[in-house]
């Protein structure tokens, strides 16, 4: 038993080191959140993104070497009470949790710390969005109703069933599971500034948000992506949820 755990840790460690990063060219991109709140495109520098979300096994390997991030040690500032609550123990997954499922119930602080340990960082929203706009053949499939429906279908499925393992179909870059498996943290989740009451239109409450006021959901036909923005903007940095994981990126 001990040995198995040890072996698992070794394998986890190997997996973490072997994490596959895929280069993306960057460039300008018409985000659902215009850079200036009006219509300016986002400018994205070239970066490399993890092909798959971080798994339970990978995160377990991290926690074993960074025990300050185990659920019995992490301060409440960095993770809420549900942090890794699906794991059987502080340093073990248990039978109900699969090694190759994406890790969830992780906070933004925890996700950030993991990526640092992998010599990487969390993606910005624009990096994540440009990567997820692709389908199997195109770098930007967002105008295709089929792409939109596939995103929406996941929203429409209740999450009563266990999460699938990582390794879904690859998009044109070779990235997997961006849509349809879990929500993913982005580094600037607290920069999305979507008003908590989505009906407040531009300038409704200037004092609350300086400058160009709260970003409101501009291109309403892009609601599939905007629902992800709404989810991210509902979060505090210490929050964890059952359907929220992450992946890392590196600047090139």
């Amino acid at each position: 038993m001990r040995f198995a755990v040890f072996l698992g840790a070794m394998l986890g460690g190997v997996a973490a080191m072997a994490a596959d990063y895929v280069p993306l060219p960057g460039g300008t991109f018409n985000s659902v959140l215009p850079a200036d709140g009006q219509n300016a495109p986002a400018r994205i520098a070239p970066f490399a993104m993890r092909a798959e979300p971080v798994t339970n096994a990978e995160y377990l390997a991290f926690v074993r070497t960074h025990t300050a991030w185990s659920k019995d040690q992490v301060p409440a500032l960095f993770a809420d009470g549900a942090y890794l609550s699906h794991w059987a123990g502080a340093l073990s997954l248990g039978d109900a949790v699969l090694a190759d499922q994406p890790v969830t119930e992780v906070s933004w602080f925890a996700a950030r710390a993991y990526c640092e340990g992998e010599d990487a960082r969390l993606p910005t929203w624009y990096e994540w969005e440009v990567a997820a706009a692709a389908d199997a053949h195109r770098t930007d499939a967002r105008a295709d109703p089929a792409w939109r429906q596939s995103v929406l279908d996941w929203y429409g499925r209740p999450s009563s069933a266990p999460l699938a393992p990582v390794g879904g179909a690859a998009n044109v870059y070779g990235l997997r599971d961006l849509n349809g498996l879990v929500w993913e943290w982005v580094d600037d989740f607290n920069a999305l500034l979507v008003s908590a009451d989505s009906r407040e239109q531009n300038g409704a409450d200037k004092a609350r948000f300086c400058g160009a006021a709260a970003l409101t959901l501009q291109q309403k036909e892009n609601y599939a992506t905007l629902m992800r923005v709404a989810m991210l903007s509902a979060l505090k940095a210490s929050d964890t949820t059952r359907n929220l994981g992450f992946r890392c990126v590196r600047s090139l």
């Binding site: 400018r43 600037d188 948000f209």
Partner: peptide, 12 residues
């Protein structure tokens, strides 16, 4: 959130 012109949107 930084805007392209260098200014910021931010909560107060």
């Amino acid at each position: 959130r930084q805007l392209p012109d260098g200014d910021f949107n931010h909560s107060s």
